[in-house]
């Protein structure tokens, strides 16, 4: 089942990798079976954001008064292949908390 790893096979692979790494980028991605994506820049999170997000008091409490236990995820998760297929298991249902 397992291939025996010998010093020679390690050397062979390392030599091959060095050769590929020295070739142009387009070829590299194909050889290494890799797909690229780039992340976005991050912001600093320690800020003096008093009144963050909203002004304050009464109005803003709505922001975090929602009860997640009575909520259904309503986002892009509804758009995947399994969510749209009738047999898929991504079908969204409201979660019902079981009473003990």
């Amino acid at each position: 089942m397992n291939k025996t790893i010998t010093a020679a096979s390690l050397a062979l692979a390392l030599g091959a990798a060095m050769t590929v790494a020295a070739t142009p980028a387009a070829a590299q991605n194909k050889m290494s079976d890799k797909e690229h994506c780039y992340g976005v820049a991050l912001k600093g999170k320690n800020d003096c954001k008093a009144g963050a997000g909203t002004t304050c008091a009464g109005t803003s409490m709505r922001d975090h008064q929602g009860n997640a236990w009575s909520m259904v995820p309503k986002g892009t998760c509804e758009k995947t292949l399994s969510s749209t297929s009738p047999t898929g298991h991504g079908q969204l249902k409201e979660f019902k908390e079981k009473k003990a």
Partner: peptide, 16 residues
């Protein structure tokens, strides 16, 4: 009502 400003700052900033 005034204390709610602090509650809001803490909770909203952490959610953000």
């Amino acid at each position: 009502r005034r204390f709610a400003v602090y509650r809001n700052n803490v909770i909203v900033s952490l959610i953000d």
